[in-house]
Design a protein around this nucleic acid. Sequence first.
DNA 1: ATATAACAAGTAAGTATTTACTTTGTTTTT
DNA 2: AAAAACAAAGTAAATACTTACTTGTTATAT
Lengths: 208, 208
Amino acid sequence: MKLYFCKQILTYIMRQKTEIRQEQIKQAVLDIIYTDGLKSLSTRALAIRTGISEGTIFRHFASKQDIAIAIIRDVQNEFIEILRTIVLSKKSPVDRLHEFLCTTVHYLQVHKGITLLLFTEASHNNDDAMKQHLKQIFNSQKVLMSKIIYDGVSSGIWDEKVTIEDALMLYMSIPVSLNMDIIMNSEEYMVNSYCDKTLDILLKMLHN
Amino acid sequence: MKLYFCKQILTYIMRQKTEIRQEQIKQAVLDIIYTDGLKSLSTRALAIRTGISEGTIFRHFASKQDIAIAIIRDVQNEFIEILRTIVLSKKSPVDRLHEFLCTTVHYLQVHKGITLLLFTEASHNNDDAMKQHLKQIFNSQKVLMSKIIYDGVSSGIWDEKVTIEDALMLYMSIPVSLNMDIIMNSEEYMVNSYCDKTLDILLKMLHN
DNA sequence: ATATAACAAGTAAGTATTTACTTTGTTTTT
DNA sequence: AAAAACAAAGTAAATACTTACTTGTTATAT
């Protein structure tokens, strides 16, 4: 009787739906990359980190590569979509730019490890589907930021001679700078100022 | 007789001194990372790429990790030292900044794969010696660029309110932008303009 | 000059371990 | 009773690295 009760509780904790397990596995991938590095990202390590067996992981994902694909798809469906709503809002270009940058910094902070995953997967030329996903992510960010800049230039607040590529180059330096800070063991509060800092530089660049 | 002659030629091609083999192995590491990705970087792949046996690789390097350490040491001894001579030259701050940026872009173009190696090794927290090397490389670049900017500000040509961190952030975006271009399959001539492009943005930032 | 000893550079075929992934069978939920 | 979730114990292939041995190079003694 008592054993059965315990078992029920245990299984209640353990037994989860595929969607929940998938989320846990994806999170574990980013965690492992962040804490132990890419080399430590094995299915065995994933099983230990998630607390489920190795075999079960392959019940929720067809392959290890599929987990990475799912994470990258999440970036597209969640992160890029948030950026899109910001860009399409009615706020001023400066406000939108600020929100755009802060959202990016915040996403990278919450999803530590995503930068490394994106860049290493991107360099892995063999998988064309993956490469296409990554291209789309980078391109979406470019297109969305272009829109804000275009609006600012149109309304006359920013220099019309500014190129989108210049602004984008600075924007793309955010993940590197953040990762560099992690390497350098910089304090966390420094990271929080990245958003405002980048805005300042960008505004200086864009200033009429 | 003829066999002996052939053997001599063959061995002349084959047999090499440790220094030469080490260079070949290091180059092969960067080549493999660039063409096939980090996942493909195995000692077996290295043996095939260099044309020597797996065992021989371990004659010239104590471990696989040691190859990465040697490459990173090269960055310090070659690349950083070139940057240092540029910074310490008698040219104007603008000229030095231009040369500084062009040298960086050129180095990254010739040593494709180095960016990925640096960043993935950096994220691998276990090895403190490696981490120290990387810290030193990043810090050297920071210190050297600070010197140029300081000289420019001192001589009154640049805004005294400019922070080194802002300039450094842009500078650090160069490797990412270059890698992104590789992913995006952009044309090679685009890459050649990176140096001037970055200078333009920096000068705009620094302008009094 | 030439023989020899010492060393450096090379290999093929191992090693144990780790890898991503599978199979088998059980338990839980619907 | 069907489907889904799970663990345990596999699998073959790949991994970094070693071993035992061969071959080439070079400095030294004759």
